[in-house]
Design a protein around this nucleic acid. Structure first.
Lengths: 339, 339
DNA sequence: CTGTTAGCGCATTCAT
DNA sequence: ATGAATGCGCTAACAG
């Protein structure tokens, strides 16, 4: 395969002695060509290493066979992209997209142009958009809602646009309920309650506590969301201030849980004996942490596939509904107080 | 912003009463237009929410302002994409690309078509390619080498094509040297020695040991690379077989190190007292693990920027050299035996 | 400084 | 079953 000039349909047409249209048809599998000619053309195309020029085809077809995935990063130097959960979800989306013949354009609100909503659509770089992590601010999305842009979001499903997300409330409930069952009575919630998804988890937490008045509710809000560093910092601070009074903690994500546990360990507070900690996500590291993390699993594989199939259905002009995915409590060491 | 038909250059030209070319020039910042007309056209374009159609522009310009990033996944169900290190690198690439006005097409060899080399180029979906993780098999890359496709790789830099990578050998050396200094004398290396980058780390490990004959070299090869699960499994196995005789371990990645440490903890083997463990990468979790991980830092931010600038230079027709990035030992708790 | 002209490479009418 | 003609939306000579 030496350096060869890129072939065009026209080149192939000349070589094979048929018209461009015929070549186009043959290669696109139209049944308007005889098997004989198709075979001949196909052979020539292969021999000359020909592939369709996507730009030309896109222009002609007015579609790109590409989906843009954009990760919304809340303001500031939030590092939430680096959360393994995100990666897992994006990986699943990539695979689902690939299996449908779509390419994936990936960007974050940090790397993308400020006007990303327009960048990908008006510009026709992608046929549709998957938006991950609506976060705290709905404004950028509301711009899209009023347009006819096909897009789906991951996160809270209680929105006016099509979304796929976990049953966060149920997850928060299960986690908290579990702590109560383990005998915890002073249970704190660690996470940004403003954040849409987290808020739902918090609601589940609240509900579980209200159902059992013996257990007390203690809110704690983290400054920086979704990082182990943030969890560590807040827990450390509480401990240093002598205001750490929990015997159970519901963390808004596994990474936060890990940070909290580290802080506890450093102060010789035993997990789970002194404090039981439950995370959220079930990242692959959860089972590898020590103690292994009890957590609420979100099914990223299913989630990614769902997002993709919803979006493609939309591109196909179908009406599409939001969907809430079931959530599951995975019990590991970090909450086993009975032993 | 109601549903509006997409505007074209021609539409804007009619509305503003100038020719298409003038509109094109005005919008592309050509200095061949008077400020007056440019302002006028710009205003109209904004008002009508006009953006260039990328497909048409790409076709005309024969370039896409897009770079494809492809993550090579070694055979089987290797989950190495989920390594936080990868994510970190990809994130940095995304940002570097974004700041240069490029979009990023992301895929793995699992989600991409089998003939991804051609998919992105012949098809003209991307102007260039960034390949991450050459892994164990050079074959797919050698296909590219013979072509004129602009591409750069992350990983080993001792290849015939342009690559950016860390000084793995030095890193392996520093890690091992550090263990020796900490008094370790039976030092094992945990990782796939076949893998290009890992092999270099292993060479550094070997060199350090050879410089100090008191320390013994013990190779251990992991079946599954780059996951905590793999590290855990191998360590567990060794312990169960009573063949765990190390007092120091060089892990090929932080995730592997974490898995190993978990296995040790479960068998009440103290880290760092009984066994000192050093990882590689310095993922953000390294400082959050307990004990915090001594590791060899790879600068992903710099790495991503480097990959991008090299590739863009290549697209620009410049000659580009491979580059090896410095590597740095970060000492934390997992190797502090002296205390 | 601006308009006219000519394609980029392909898919799709419309003929035949 | 095939070919000829047209245009998707844009930019870049080439004139003026």
């Amino acid at each position: 395969m030496k350096k060869k000039k890129l072939m065009t349909l026209s080149d192939i047409s000349k070589i094979s002695g048929v018209s461009e249209s015929t070549v186009s048809r043959a290669l696109s599998g139209s049944k308007l060509v005889s098997d004989k000619t198709r075979a001949k053309i196909q052979a020539i195309a292969d021999e000359h290493n020909f592939t369709i020029n996507a730009a030309a085809r896109n222009l002609r077809l007015q579609k790109t066979k590409t989906v843009a995935v954009i990760i919304l990063i809340s303001s500031g130097n939030d590092q939430s992209v680096s959360d393994p959960f995100m990666l897992s979800l994006v990986g699943s989306i990539a695979e689902a997209l690939g299996s449908k013949g779509y390419d994936m354009l990936l960007s974050t609100t940090r790397s993308a142009p400020q006007d990303w909503q327009r960048h990908y659509f008006d510009t026709r770089k992608a046929d549709g958009l998957i938006i991950i992590g609506q976060g705290e601010d709905d404004a950028p999305l509301n711009v899209l809602v009023d347009s006819t842009y096909p897009f789906v979001t991951w996160g809270s499903t209680a929105k006016s646009y099509t979304g796929v997300g976990s049953d966060n409330r149920k997850g928060g409930y299960l986690a908290t309920r579990h702590l109560i069952d383990q005998g915890c009575r002073r249970i704190g919630f660690f996470g940004k309650a403003h954040h849409a998804e987290i808020h739902e988890r918090w609601q589940g937490y609240k509900q579980a506590l209200e159902e059992n008045e013996a257990a007390a509710m203690i809110d704690t809000t983290l400054d920086v969301p979704f990082t182990a560093q943030a969890g560590y910092k807040v827990a450390k601070q509480l401990i240093n201030d002598n205001s750490f009074t929990y015997d159970g903690i519901v963390a808004a994500s596994d990474m936060i849980a890990i940070g909290i546990i580290k802080a506890l360990k450093e102060s010789a507070i035993n997990v789970p004996k002194d404090v039981a900690v439950v995370g959220f996500d079930d990242i692959s590291l959860a089972s590898m942490y020590h103690p292994s993390l009890t957590t609420v699993r979100q099914d990223t594989v299913h989630g990614g596939e769902m997002l993709v199939s919803k979006l493609l259905a939309k591109l196909n002009g179908e009406e599409v509904q939001s969907e809430t995915l079931p959530t599951q409590l995975v019990i590991r060491q970090s909450t086993q107080r009975s032993k």
